[in-house]
Nucleic acid binder design. Structure first.
Length: 428
RNA sequence: GGAGGCGUCGCAUAGUGGCCUAGUGCGCCCGCCUGCUAAGCGGGUUGGGGUUAACACCCCUCGCGAGUUCAAAUCUCGCCGCCUCCGCCA
């Protein structure tokens, strides 16, 4: 949710942001108008309500004819007060619905345009030259089958398309990656959380996933609960309706969870293997901080993501995602994309978003304005999130570290967690 | 799934239709007093919104939402959460 006061004071900033996203900027004027209507109907209601209250108080002390006369007066007002309350509530709803359609204000420097208009920030490492090594790389599914690590056929038998079984070394590799993440999280001062994988509607809505992403979300009809598509939802809502004390610095968390996605809009896309699935594991970082610290925290999350990518020794690049490709809550997003040898492309492995105060405003997460002083007001905090690793990482690790016979070298950083230097056919 | 209890300011509690402009204690903030600290004394202390140049004033907020009433923390209905017990269960 955007800040109505900011929009009132600086509508041009919001128009520019909408344009950069490729969205309608006329909504800004519609909001200004709705805001005016809301405030005038509210004032009208409040004035009549005030006289109703004072008359009502007089009734309690009056007697006889005075009392009858006052009762007649105040009875007449009561109906009108009810009408005005309804009108003003309706104007508030109109404004809220309009406000909900506006995404977060894009941060200066974010490239305009759509998916293809990202800015390349840096490329790290060099893709292997398999031709020079004398063999054609196998894709992760072929490798997973050779290693007995991955079973897609049985996954779809049991769960349908886009489901899979990890098995043996595959399970242990995934666990190793997640364990590395939790170790790094702890070293970086992120408190581990284990979170609800099912959440109620306000949490899902507050995190911003029931607007443009609504089709992507699994909903359990019988219980009116939603399966999280990322632990970001559950961590963001962890502090909902709270006033935080950030005087000792940002609150930083990390959670590993299963993630559930319908992948409704991606039929026929990435259908082979486990690149895009309905269910996967992810370890996620999340930060609650003061708005003025958000930029630095975003850089920090990107640094941590790169630290883990470096540790698994895959070539990758960092991009600044274009405005039109950002989700509603994000003001800026950096993706890290790893080189996938058999696709001969860089594909997303991590994503870190600075949601500034947008998500926190919806979830009602604030801090005291003048630290400690009880007479200070409150203000919205900033929230940021970033991927540490996902099951998809196995794709990049298997393909980039494969050997000619189908075995796979284990990156040094993962060896302590796996207890072996190579994944081999027949291993468990 | 069934039965019962509970939900009031950061915490603890008072409040069963108008005297509630929600009281009190603790905590916290400011000040006074004071070798220092503690104690004591005085004041302040939910959150959101609106009007205003400002000082101020007004409206909403007693888990949430409807309703009854001139008037609701208080009465009615629905929902949510927590606790206790029973039943069922991967």
């Amino acid at each position: 949710m955007i800040d109505i006061k900011e929009l009132r004071d600086h509508p041009e900033v919001f128009r520019a942001s909408q344009k950069a996203r490729g969205e309608d900027d006329g909504v800004v004027d519609a909001i200004l108008e709705a805001d005016l209507r809301r405030r005038s109907s509210l004032t009208e209601f409040e004035q009549l309500r005030a006289s109703q209250k004072s008359l009502s108080k007089d009734v309690s002390t009056a007697t006889g004819e005075d009392r009858d006369r006052l009762l007649a007066q105040t009875k007449a007002i009561a109906a009108r007060v009810k009408e005005l309350a309804a009108t003003s509530a309706a104007e508030q709803d109109t404004l809220d619905s309009l406000m909900m359609t506006v995404g977060n204000v894009i941060i200066d420097g974010v490239p305009s345009g759509g998916e293809e208009d990202f800015a390349l920030l840096e490329t790290v490492g060099t893709p292997r030259d398999f031709a020079a090594e004398g063999f054609a790389p196998r894709d992760h599914l072929a490798l997973g089958e050779i290693l007995g690590a991955l079973d897609i056929a049985r996954g779809s038998k049991v769960g349908g398309s886009r489901f899979y079984y990890l098995r043996g070394q595959g399970v242990r590799l995934e666990n190793a990656v997640m364990s590395l993440c939790m170790q790094v999280a702890r070293e970086e001062g992120h408190v581990p959380l284990s979170v609800p994988n099912l959440v109620k509607e306000p949490s899902m809505r507050g995190a911003g996933y029931l607007d443009s992403h609504a089709d992507e979300v699994y909903r359990l009809e019988a219980d009116d609960l939603y399966l999280i598509g990322t632990s970001e939802v559950a961590i963001a809502a962890f502090h909902s309706d709270e006033i935080l004390d950030l005087s000792d610095g940002p609150l930083r968390y990390a959670a590993a969870s299963t993630c559930y996605r319908r992948e409704a809009g991606s039929h026929g896309k990435d259908t082979r293997g486990i690149f895009r699935t309905h269910q996967f594991q992810k370890t996620e970082m999340f930060v609650f901080c003061r708005p003025e610290d958000a930029l630095a925290e975003h850089e920090r999350l990107l640094r941590i993501e790169r630290r883990i990518l470096d540790a698994v020794e895959v070539p990758y690049r960092v991009i600044d995602v274009a405005a039109g490709d950002l989700g509603g809550p994000a003001a800026r997003k950096f993706d890290c994309e790893a080189w996938i040898p058999t696709q001969e492309k860089y594909r997303e492995l991590t994503s870190t978003s600075n949601c500034t105060t947008f998500q926190a405003r919806r979830l009602n997460i604030r801090e005291r304005e003048s630290g400690g002083d009880s007479r200070g007001g409150t203000r919205s905090v900033a929230t940021l999130n970033g991927t540490m690793a996902t099951t998809r990482w196995l794709v990049a690790i298997l393909e980039n570290h494969q050997l000619a016979d189908g075995s796979v070298r284990v990156p040094a950083a993962l060896q302590p967690f796996l207890g072996q230097t190579t994944l081999v056919p027949g291993g468990i």
